[in-house]
């Protein structure tokens, strides 16, 4: 199980990307989805997930819906209009970060640096 600090800065972007793909999701579903997509390599801890969701909600990037499932209240999160725009920005930023890291870690793969 990998849960390196390297992933921490990207947690909100991961959450927003998942919500962009899946519409609305609840907390437990997000943890399971990440686990499944990464074959158990990445594990979002509960202690990090909920503060991130609540922060995004307070910033107006997420909206909440409640539904009764199996006789209990379930809180779903979905992106607001500004959340959708912010997801595009954050994904671009993350992709740029990944490209830069690849260039730094493995300069041989960068054609600009080849002679």
């Amino acid at each position: 199980m990998k849960n390196s600090p390297l992933y921490k800065g990207s947690l909100t972007t991961i959450i927003m990307k998942l919500l962009e793909e899946n519409g609305r999701m609840y907390g437990y579903e997000i943890t399971q989805k990440v686990k499944k997509t990464t074959n158990g390599e990445l594990n979002i801890t509960e202690g990090a997930l909920y503060p991130a969701l609540h922060k995004l909600e307070a910033e107006g990037l997420l909206d909440v819906e409640v539904a009764k499932v199996d006789n209990r209240m379930r809180k779903y999160y979905k992106l607001t209009e500004s959340g959708k725009k912010e997801t595009v920005n954050r994904l671009e930023e993350l992709e740029e970060f990944i490209r830069n890291m690849q260039t730094l870690v493995n300069p041989k793969t960068n054609p600009d640096l080849q002679f």
Partner: peptide
């Protein structure tokens, strides 16, 4: 146990901060 040694306290504290900001 998955919530770590501080249990729910970290979530409670950060929720308080988020809603105070709101």
């Amino acid at each position: 146990k998955k919530f770590g040694v501080f249990g729910f306290s970290d979530i409670v504290e950060k929720r308080q901060n988020a809603l105070t900001k709101k």
